[in-house]
């Protein structure tokens, strides 16, 4: 296909279960570290005092995404069609 056809180098780091496990643990630690400072700083609010609770944006992001995914899933039952839908 290409003139300089040669075997590409193959990386497999993400194929090892222990690496995935490390990533997951790192991710959870990161999540905890991100919420931690909220307990110690004074938070500004824009519209409501609810925004001042620690981890508000964490909760906001999580719930938003869960809601978006669930709504998409529901709409998917109506909107998703087989790939040849328009070709039939």
């Amino acid at each position: 296909m290409k003139p300089e056809e040669k075997k590409p180098e193959v990386w497999t780091w993400f194929d090892h279960p222990q690496n995935i496990k490390r990533l997951r643990i790192g991710f959870y630690i990161l999540l905890a570290l991100l919420v931690l400072p909220d307990f110690f700083i004074h938070k500004h609010t824009l519209f409501s005092s609810i925004e001042a609770i620690p981890g508000f944006y964490a909760l906001f992001g999580f719930i938003s995404c869960v809601v978006i995914i669930l709504i998409s899933k529901l709409l998917g039952f109506v909107l998703k069609k087989k790939e040849d839908y328009y070709d039939r």
Binding site: F27, G61, F62, I69, K81, Y85
Partner: peptide, 26 residues
């Protein structure tokens, strides 16, 4: 960072719901 990382958490937790299908969307 909180908003984004916890969105990522939601993504990986609900991954089974996001499984790709051979479909198009109307």
């Amino acid at each position: 960072f909180q908003l984004l990382m916890f969105s990522a958490l939601a993504f990986f937790m609900l991954l089974p719901l996001l499984k790709r299908t051979r479909t198009i969307s109307l």
